[in-house]
Amino acid sequence: MATKSKSKTPAWKTGEWSISQEQYKQIANKREPSRSVYKNCIRAFLVGGTICLIGQVIQQMFISFAGMSKEQASSPTVVTLILISVILTCFGVYDKIAQWAGAGSAVPVTGFANSMSSAAMEHRSEGLVLGVGANMFKLAGSVIVFGTVAAFIIALIYLIFGINIKHG
């Protein structure tokens, strides 16, 4: 090692870094595996579509076997889907589906149910009030907040432009 003493100290021995943050980001980006957008879109389409199809089957069953009208069947259909989602969350299956499905399992009502039930389960150890109660909307809360804000803005637009809404 001592024979090389005449040459310049190599960069690694100096403890100095010559690369900038931007240069480092370029080095790091080269090694970052990309998320496959197309694959994710197809998977989301398949899983999201399947969940909606299951919902449609459930709705049809309420209409055919329980003698409900289409409007009457919609609420129990949603409740049934939520129940299925919560059961799958409790058995530790929903997160595994989501890793494969991406947005496909996050967007439908089942995703909302999963976000609430998973938070409730996770924080059960901190008690019913400060744990379950306070944390249940930890993830779903922002959906409700921005859903309400969006609804308010739409309502304003309707009001300003004098659009009449017919309630069903």
Binding site: P33, S34, R35, N40, T89, C90, G92, Y94, D95, I97, A98, Q99, A101, G102, A103, S105, A106, G111, N114, S115, S117, S118, A119, M121, E122, H123, K138, L139
Partner: peptide, 11 residues
């Protein structure tokens, strides 16, 4: 996130 929350982790 909560352990059972269904979010897709990046590779």
């Amino acid at each position: 996130y909560p352990t059972e929350y269904g979010s897709q982790k990046p590779p």
